[in-house]
Design a protein around this nucleic acid. Structure first.
Lengths: 228, 228
DNA sequence: ATCTCTGGTGATCGATCGATAAACTGCGCC
DNA sequence: GGCGCAGTTTATCGATCGATCACCAGAGAT
């Protein structure tokens, strides 16, 4: 056998990229792959998506875990790039409008198959970054929303929201989040008008907050008991 | 080499079980394993949990996939065994009480690490059984709740709830569901009093439903589009 | 034209995966 | 008390996984 034949390489395309480009291409395609297959997705499948061979991955990342960490970083930090802090805090505009705009922008950022699946997969792994993100939502979004609500209702300011208030905000926030899960994870039919969904959810949240604020001032809430 | 030495077996315990017992033990332990590791969890790790060897699995299940299917069946069908249909429909009791009791019982059934994790893992796989469950929640729970709400508010009965109403119910339901996810998946601190959380969520849902019902009587809403 | 640096490949290793076949062992039955 | 079957193990296969190594090739500098 002539093993020395200079096999004229019929490679589809010799894709010679700069190190930075190749590296970020790895992260992008890895995000897509892991979003679909979970983090158990293979490095060979990933290389195939790039049109390169598998060992090349290890020129850019010491291990698969390091690649995964980069995927986390990118996914979790992406939605934070929108400056929604100011949207919520800008008291020159009506609270209702601010909340509506914030949730429209926020859900625009995270309601897509890729983000939601990576988020759920990493949540199931119980990673620190996931806990950090949940804490961030609590501190930077829900606490801020509650502060604005209290201000809007003319209530006394307090450094930290009560546990019940916070839970109210979480249930509201979670309800909206679950809309994205139903649409992009379960692929179930949903009310197509997302803005309308947010608007309706806001209606009942704000009404509920006012009710709770009122009842908290005059009478103590009677505990609910269920017998049966 | 004396390869025929009758090695007196020092097995910890010869656990000789009946076929039925062994089989259900496989399903139980597989549920625990897959809940923690995902369905990528290995058959050897599963066997180790049972204190048996790995090939034994294949005496009871043709393949790992068949075992997984049994896990699905068990997990998805378990919460259905409570007869919550009657709890919701029993009009001799106040609606508010019925809803409170239903959600307390329902969440007692599904708010645990095992159930929620299996549910999320299988949801990410996009299986038919998951779609079936979501459809079941819609038809058997949310639609029924809305029907009872309409009846309670003295509104005209309609065979199927409007898309906006359904979405309202979904956001409410999802908000409660997300409480379980936060507690058992993210292991984040939550308001410990689950009944109180349900009660508060119900307050704002019912108030929101009434508001929507009122506004629907005087002015017409724009038509809503549903997309699969 | 050649040297060199670096992006990229081919071959392969050890571990682990799901699955199979054959041997063994303990319990119930006659 | 020995037979037989059902429950279990030992050994092993082929595929696939992440990772490593030596080598190749193409673009820019000289």
């Amino acid at each position: 056998m002539n093993r020395k034949a200079p096999v004229k390489r019929a490679r589809a395309k010799q894709k010679r990229l700069s190190a930075d480009d190749r590296r970020s291409e790895f992260v992008i395609k890895a995000t897509e792959l892991f979003a679909e297959e979970g983090f158990g997705g293979g490095t060979r499948a990933l290389a195939r998506k790039l049109g390169v061979t598998q060992p090349l991955l290890y020129r850019y990342f010491p291990s698969k875990d390091d690649l995964i960490k980069e995927v986390y970083r990118k996914v979790y930090l992406e939605p934070l790039e929108i400056g929604w802090e100011k949207v919520l805090a800008d008291r020159s505009r009506p609270l209702r409008i601010r909340l509506q705009e914030f949730y429209e922008v926020y859900t625009d950022a995270i309601f897509n198959r890729k983000w939601l699946r990576i988020y759920l997969y990493s949540g199931l792994k119980g990673l620190d970054i996931n806990r950090w993100y949940v804490g961030m939502v609590k501190d930077k979004i829900l606490t801020r929303i509650l502060r604005e609500c209290r201000h809007d209702a003319g209530l006394a300011m307090q450094s930290r929201p009560s546990a019940a208030e916070l839970e109210l905000a979480w249930v509201f926030h979670g309800g909206i989040f679950y809309y994205g899960v139903r649409k992009y994870i379960y692929e179930a039919p949903v009310l197509e008008d997302k803005a309308r969904m947010i608007s309706d959810a806001l209606d009942i949240f704000l009404a509920g907050f006012e009710r709770m604020a009122e009842s908290a001032t005059d009478r103590r809430r009677a505990p609910i008991k269920i017998v049966g």
